Every structure is written in structure tokens, then in C-alpha cells.
Amino acid sequence: MPRNIRGGAPIPPGAPSRRTPEALGAESAPATVPLRPLGRLYEVASTLTAQLAADLKEHGLTAPTFHILAVLRQAGPAHRLTTGQLAAIDMVTCSGMTVRADKLERSGLIVRERDEHDRRVIHLRLTGRGLDLTDRILAGQHAREARLMAALDTDELQALARLADTLERALQHVADDPPAAPPH
């Protein structure tokens, strides 16, 4: 018997999903039918995000602190960037980055290093422990995504990639357009 997307109780055969027009009621069906695929994509993304959040919580991390580790992991062999560079990437203030860095440093996942040419500049660098943890979390997430994608054949994967590109372009246009005026 299929389970709901979050892995909860089995869905009885013939029972409508909570997001189907049948579950929402006939009067709302016409308005919701075009949005169903987006709702389903949102559900998949939300589930993956929740699973990653659970993995991070298990290691005392949050999405923002893990993002710092992941960015440092990708920063070349030194695994090191300045506080200002990381703050710009995360679009936070330097003081906001400092708070996150303090937590990661206390956990032994990063170290602070003064720049050898300008002592005012502070670099954040992954420790061996931070590198190992980041790699394990990323490997787990990649394996989860690979299992999900294994449900699709090659043609479906290619179609999904094309559709995702199309939606991403459309989303950019929607973001650039002014909001529609409410109906009178």
C-alpha cells in the first residue's frame, strides 16, 4: 500500500490525497487543478528539506551553519574564506556571520585564522573534523537524492530537467514582473 510522501501512515486504496481536488471539495477544484503539480513539487522539496534538517539537527547544525561548512568545503584545497566573503555569499552582516562562526568554532568544525598580510582580516577554515562531517552529510543527502531519482528512467530524468529549467526561467520572469492588480 502506498505511503504518504513523508513516510507516514499508509494511504488506503482509492483515498484522495489531501491536496487533490476531491479532498479539497468540488467547489475549489477548478482553482486548484492547475496548481497541483507545483504543490506536489513543493511537497517533494519540503520533504527533502525536512530530512536534511533532521540530519543537521542530529549534529547540532542548522541550515545556515551547514551552509557555511558547505561553502568552505567548495572553497578549494585550503577550505578557507574570509568572514566578509562568507557574509556576502550568505547575504548576512559580518556580525551575523560572526555569531554563526562562533558556534561552529566552539564545535571544533572551523578555526579562525588571521591573514598573514593584514591582521584585520579573519579567515574561517574547515578543520579536519569539519571537513569529515560536511562530507558525510553531503554524501547522505546525495544518496537520498539519488534514491529519489532512481524512480525515474532516463527519458523521465531528461524531461524533468527540461521542465525544471523552464519553470526556473518562468519564475525569474514572474519575479521581474510587477504584481498583478487585484480584481475589482
Rank of each mutant, 00 (worst) to 15 (best):
P2I: 02
I5L: 09
R6E: 13
R6F: 11
R6I: 03
G8W: 04
A9M: 06
P10L: 02
P13N: 08
P13D: 08
G14L: 01
P16C: 05
R18N: 14
E22G: 00
A23V: 02
E27F: 08
A31P: 03
T32W: 12
L35K: 05
L38H: 05
R40N: 09
L41K: 13
L41C: 10
Y42P: 01
V44N: 10
A45P: 05
T47C: 07
Q51E: 14
L52D: 11
A53W: 09
A54R: 15
K57H: 14
E58F: 05
H59P: 00
H59L: 01
G60F: 02
L61D: 00
L61I: 02
A63H: 15
A63I: 12
P64V: 11
F66N: 01
V71S: 14
Q74Y: 11
A75L: 05
A78W: 11
H79Y: 07
T83D: 12
Q85E: 15
L86E: 03
A88S: 12
I89G: 01
D90H: 13
D90E: 15
V92P: 01
T93E: 08
T93A: 09
S95K: 06
T98E: 13
T98R: 10
K103V: 05
S107P: 04
S107T: 09
G108L: 02
L109N: 01
I110L: 10
I110T: 12
R112E: 07
R112C: 08
E113A: 14
E116F: 14
R119I: 00
R120H: 12
L124Q: 04
L124G: 01
L126S: 08
G128Y: 04
R129I: 06
R129H: 11
I137E: 00
L138S: 14
A139K: 12
Q141C: 02
R144A: 05
E145A: 14
R147C: 06
M149R: 10
L157N: 13
L160W: 15
L160Y: 12
A161I: 09
L163E: 12
A164M: 09
A164K: 06
D165R: 15
D165S: 13
T166A: 08
T166L: 08
T166E: 15
R169W: 01
L171C: 13
V174N: 11
V174Y: 12
A175G: 13
D176M: 06
D176A: 13
P179L: 05
P179D: 06
A181C: 04
P182Q: 03
P183N: 03
